[in-house]
Nucleic acid binder design. Structure first.
Lengths: 240, 240
DNA sequence: GTCTATAGAATGATAGAC
DNA sequence: GTCTATCATTCTATAGAC
């Protein structure tokens, strides 16, 4: 398997459409985001890129480094695209709608927490930091746009950083809907409209509800005991 | 290692505080949610539960089955707790606030998509379905409360299912903030208030903004090329 | 002729299954 | 506690660019 049909040695310059290093990082980003760090083997990345494992190591040195580079690369692309849309004119609300539709149409989910699940013990501190910084750059461009819109009076005085994270979380809801087959391509536009409306106006029936809340009185909360038997069917449960 | 200090043979009934099967599933749920499926070994689950690997296989048969049972168990507990709060009286907004604070204080993140990352090829169809059903039960109890509040006039006529998913997504934002050290325990209450306010009232500065939007005109969008070199430092990048 | 980009095979460790 | 498959990583060889 791996790279069948390829000749040995360095290829002629006019024979390479996309350089190997690029093909590898694109493939890696897609696979890691789809399946997570552990589920993706270097062999898979290699064969899906049309090269051998040795090439992956030649260019990226280790699996952890490939992972870090791929995630960082993807986030930077996504941030650049988002920034471009934000810098175009018009109402913020419309620009956010465009971002939402764009991200749901083409972009992969970029939930750092989910991405890093299971890698925390494997990645070095420096690699973790690089990914977190890439994420912060992404959130910041949105937060900056929110802060500016608040100054311009288009937004309430909400915490821009919080609003940016909430906005991104909404997009992840859409990604999940797509993955589970509840949101076909042709309804993306409508879905974004509905969610942006929720984000922009909230759920309240009272238009004058915009007032800071005191702390709600907490009802009594107790954990309910689970009555279900979750053990493996063929095996008996020990009685006491 | 594994279960040091334990004697061989079946323990006397008065010597077991929590039955082994329970300890195993609790430990497994915590570890799987924290670290993901692949990163957790059956050996780890066993030793953290104070039993041997053989016990894990005795009660749960396989790693995939243990995983399914653990996630399902955790979701059912979380759903039961949520349901209890929702059934208590008062304004929906206050009950949601209570749920938010409770989930951020004690519960693990329950993002099915993140949980299942990397397991899709390992789990059977039936196991996947069981987890998805457990999640739907969870979303449904919230959606039902939203539908009822809409009938009672406390909510706008938003899609209850969508609103429920958005609400849960906001809680995941909080979980992420906690994990990255940006949300210490003492600020949880205040954070929930702020986010619930966002959820309830939206971000708009215009209180009369609650009107369906037409589709926004899309500004031109082009991908920006990433100028950064993401390859492994020791290796040179081929120039064209 | 030397260096670069590539393939193929070997090694060593881990972890699930039973 | 043992068996075995998988996977990250390394080593070596080679064809062609420069």
């Amino acid at each position: 398997m791996s790279a069948e049909g390829r000749r040995l040695g360095r290829p002629r310059a006019n024979e390479v459409d996309v350089p190997a290093a690029d093909r590898i990082i694109r493939t890696a980003a897609r696979l890691f985001l789809e399946q997570g760090y552990d589920a993706v083997t270097t062999e898979t990345v290699a064969s899906c890129s049309g090269v051998t494992k040795a090439m992956v190591y030649y260019y990226y040195g280790s699996k952890t480094n490939l992972f870090t580079a791929a995630i960082e690369w993807m986030m930077d692309i996504s941030r650049a695209r988002t920034q471009e849309i934000l810098m175009s004119g018009g109402r913020l609300r419309d620009r956010l709608h465009t971002i939402a539709v764009t991200r749901l149409r083409i972009a992969a989910p970029l939930d750092v927490d989910a991405i890093l699940r299971g890698t925390r013990s494997t990645l070095t501190e420096e690699q973790l930091a690089r990914i977190h910084q890439a994420e912060e750059r992404m959130v910041s461009v949105i937060a900056d746009a929110f802060a500016e819109a608040a100054r311009a009076g288009e937004l309430r005085a909400v915490d821009p950083l919080l609003a940016a994270r909430v906005f991104l979380a909404l997009l992840m809801v859409g990604k999940m809907e797509q993955k589970q087959g509840r949101l076909p391509e042709e309804r993306v536009e409508a879905w974004c409209t509905e969610v942006m409306d929720l984000f922009w106006c909230g759920v309240s029936a009272d238009p004058a509800a915009i007032a800071p809340q005191g702390v709600a009185p907490a009802p009594s909360v107790r954990a309910a005991a689970p009555p279900v038997d979750h053990t493996h069917p063929p095996h008996p449960k020990g009685e006491e």
